[in-house]
Lab assay of single mutants.
Amino acid sequence: EPEARKIVEKLINNGLSPEDVKRWAEKNNNPEVKKAAEEYQKR
């Protein structure tokens, strides 16, 4: 999901860690963003 990846990169560029992004995604019920954050961590 390229859109989710863009969101993850934007949040990380704004100073969030991938863990923060995953928590944000869970709080906002956004499994695509959570998955993208996990993939981002593996890179």
Rank of each mutant, 00 (worst) to 15 (best):
V21L: 05
D20T: 04
V33W: 03
E1S: 13
A4S: 06
A25M: 02
K27D: 12
A4M: 04
D20H: 05
I7M: 09
R23E: 09
P18C: 09
E9H: 10
A36P: 01
K27T: 09
V33M: 06
K35M: 08
E19D: 12
P18Q: 04
Y40F: 09
K22G: 05
G15Q: 04
N28Q: 08
A37Y: 05
Q41N: 07
R43Y: 14
E9L: 12
K34G: 09
P31E: 11
R23W: 07
A25G: 03
E32L: 13
K35Q: 09
V8F: 14
K42S: 10
E39V: 06
Y40W: 14
K34W: 15
G15M: 04
E26H: 05
P18E: 04
E38N: 05
E1P: 12
P18T: 08
K34H: 11
Y40R: 02
A36N: 02
E32H: 10
Y40M: 06
E39P: 01
N13Y: 10
E9N: 08
K22H: 06
K34I: 12
E39H: 06
V8H: 02
V21G: 00
N29G: 12
I12S: 02
P2R: 15
Q41G: 07
Q41Y: 11
E38K: 04
N13F: 11
N29F: 06
S17R: 05
K6S: 12
L11W: 10
E39A: 09
N14H: 12
I12F: 07
E38A: 07
S17F: 03
A4H: 05
I12R: 03
R43V: 10
D20W: 09
V8Q: 01
K22Y: 11
K22I: 15
R23T: 08
W24S: 00
S17P: 02
A25N: 00
K42H: 10
L16Y: 13
K34N: 05
K42R: 13
V33Q: 01
A37S: 03
S17G: 05
D20N: 04
E1N: 13
V33R: 00
E1H: 11
A25W: 03
V8N: 01
W24A: 00
K22T: 07
E1L: 13
I12T: 02
S17I: 02
A25D: 00
A36Q: 07
N14C: 14
N29R: 06
E1K: 11
L16R: 04
N30P: 01
N30V: 10
A37V: 13
K34F: 15
E38I: 11
P31S: 08
K35R: 12
A37T: 03
E1G: 11
R43H: 10
I12L: 12
D20A: 09
E19N: 06
A36D: 01
R5K: 11
D20V: 04
E19L: 07
V21E: 00
L11A: 04
P18W: 14
V8R: 01
E32K: 07
N28E: 07
R5T: 10
K22V: 15
S17L: 05
